[in-house]
Design a protein around this nucleic acid. Structure first.
Length: 286
DNA sequence: CCTTGTGTTCTCCG
DNA sequence: CCGGAGAACACAAG
């Protein structure tokens, strides 16, 4: 599941690969993923190029050279953006370990072809992904809905405290709400709360100032580390080269329900919280 | 049946 | 009764 660290890793790599390359062809295998008028979409993308790639939360923002509109790409659960250079395409084989694991396959729903012979594959197994062209007004409207973002200047303790203080939902649901805090998904929510020593089912408004501070600090530490490790590949996520993220080695609780806590050796609890699988340690988290 | 990100819809409460 | 908050549902496929 691509969350902030995965999308940020992709953004940085894709910017290097794609910047100012002319898109000579666009192949759309599943029209449902395009949330704009299809004719307009094709017309706008073809012969255009990406002049910059930005990101808000888990949303990628592709700025176009020859249009006032902007391309938004959301990977949702299983979306991938895999870049393959002409050299790799000519070589053809994906047999050696350095070649992309996932390039063109039955899940390739969109294929961008560039003038230098390289290709960008939008692969999506569960097809929740979304691509949309928006004008400046709509872009601002969408961006404004996102909450404060870890690693951005507005992610200050005071702002975070204000969001957490008076809300009557559990702290995990708060962390997952993109309108309050942006970029955190199920993996990092569990990891952040483990590091902070706070149970995910604690009511937001009942947390002490020091607990709020610990969650705030842990958010920065975990997200930073995850970006440094190029994200988490639990099952589906791949980077722009088709490679896995390394943060899975550092997961303390996510996906470890029933296993022993790495800190205290007691068995980790697994519960359902706001409809999401949630793992925590009842000894280390209070 | 399970998995999850998000938009929509429903329900509750002051 | 209105509005907002929060929870529940829908979506999809392996």
């Amino acid at each position: 599941m691509p969350e902030l660290p995965e999308v940020e890793t992709l953004r940085k790599d894709l910017l290097v690969f794609l910047k100012n390359k002319r898109i000579v062809d666009l192949s759309i295998k599943l029209e449902r993923l395009i949330k704009s008028d299809l004719k307009e979409f094709k017309k706008t993308i073809k012969n255009n190029s990406f002049k910059n790639i930005r990101r808000v939360g888990k949303l990628m923002i592709f700025e176009l050279e020859k249009s006032d509109k902007t391309l938004l790409v959301h990977l949702k659960m299983t979306g991938q953006l895999i870049y393959v250079s002409q050299d790799s395409l000519v070589a053809g084989g994906h047999s050696d370990s350095s070649s992309p694991e996932f390039s063109e396959n039955k899940y390739s729903k969109l294929i961008f072809q560039f003038s230098d012979g390289s290709k960008l594959f939008f692969n999506d197994m569960r097809t929740f992904g979304a691509l949309k062209l928006v004008d400046v007004r709509e872009l601002i409207e969408i961006i404004n809905k996102f909450g404060i973002e870890p690693l951005q200047k507005d992610f200050r303790l005071k702002s975070f405290q204000k969001i957490v203080e008076k809300r009557s939902l559990n702290i995990k649901a708060l962390l997952l709400n993109q309108n309050l805090v942006s970029g955190i998904g199920n993996i990092y929510a569990d990891e952040i709360l483990f590091r902070a020593g706070v149970r995910p089912d604690r009511l937001s408004k009942e947390l002490s100032k020091s607990e709020i501070k610990k969650i705030w600090q842990s958010t920065e530490v975990i997200i930073k580390k995850a970006i440094k490790e190029r994200g988490t590949t639990f099952n589906n996520y791949r980077d722009a080269r088709g490679k896995k993220g390394n943060f899975v080695k550092f997961l303390k609780v996510y996906g470890r329900g029933g296993e022993k806590c790495k800190k205290c050796k007691s068995v980790l609890n697994k519960i359902k919280l706001s409809g999401r699988g949630t793992v925590y340690c009842s000894v280390c988290q209070k």
